[in-house]
Simulated assay, not measured.
Amino acid sequence: MHEAAYKIDLYNADVINSVLLIPLRVVARWEQLIHGTIADFQDEVELIGEDAASMDAYAASDPAEFFVVLSEYFFSSLELLAERFADLYGCSVRFYRQDPLSRLTALRSGRIQDVHIMA
């Protein structure tokens, strides 16, 4: 997922030669959230250390790395991401057009028929 997220990020960065995957207004909101969250996360890493941080401290290095680590957590540690960074989880749901936490919750409760694929 890490490397795939890099490719998605590069694809969106090359707006001259490509079509954005998400509308610019959504990109602007996401960038605002990411930059604010990175600052908070960097403070967390400095305060409690890399090993105790709520997610991989590498994410604090820059916005591109934050996006990549966020994408990893969206698919592999979705409960942590949804709890710790709820707004960014919501942005990821819209970006990736799926809600893995909703699927996981439905699966655990036996309501798998309640799972929707977002178009």
Rank of each mutant, 00 (worst) to 15 (best):
I112G: 04
Y96Q: 04
A82L: 02
A39V: 07
D99N: 15
Y89W: 07
A86Y: 05
S76E: 14
P100L: 10
A106Y: 09
I22E: 12
A64Q: 13
A86Q: 09
A64E: 07
V26E: 15
A106N: 15
F95K: 01
I117A: 13
D43L: 01
D40I: 05
Y96P: 03
Y96L: 04
I16D: 07
H116I: 13
L107G: 03
E83M: 08
Y73T: 04
L10P: 00
I117L: 13
E72R: 10
L78C: 10
A119C: 05
I38Q: 09
R103T: 09
S92Y: 04
Y89N: 10
D114Y: 02
G49A: 02
H2A: 11
G49P: 02
S76F: 04
F75Q: 07
V93S: 09
D40E: 15
H2T: 10
D56P: 02
Q98F: 00
L88E: 11
G90A: 15
F66I: 05
A13G: 13
R29A: 15
R103E: 14
D56Q: 08
D40W: 00
F95H: 01
A59K: 09
L10G: 10
R29C: 10
L81C: 07
R94M: 12
L78T: 15
D62K: 05
S77T: 04
K7C: 03
D40P: 00
I38C: 01
C91N: 11
E83K: 14
N17G: 10
S76R: 09
I22A: 12
I48G: 03
S92F: 01
S76W: 02
V68I: 13
D87W: 00
R94N: 08
Q98P: 00
A53E: 07
V19T: 10
P63N: 03
R103G: 12
H2W: 06
A86R: 12
L20Q: 07
V69W: 00
Y6F: 11
E72M: 06
L107T: 15
H35S: 12
D114F: 06
Y58Q: 13
L33V: 06
R111L: 11
A60V: 03
K7G: 07
A86W: 00
E72A: 01
G110L: 10
L101F: 06
Y6E: 13
L10N: 14
Q98R: 14
I38T: 02
Y11W: 09
I117G: 09
V69E: 10
R97K: 15
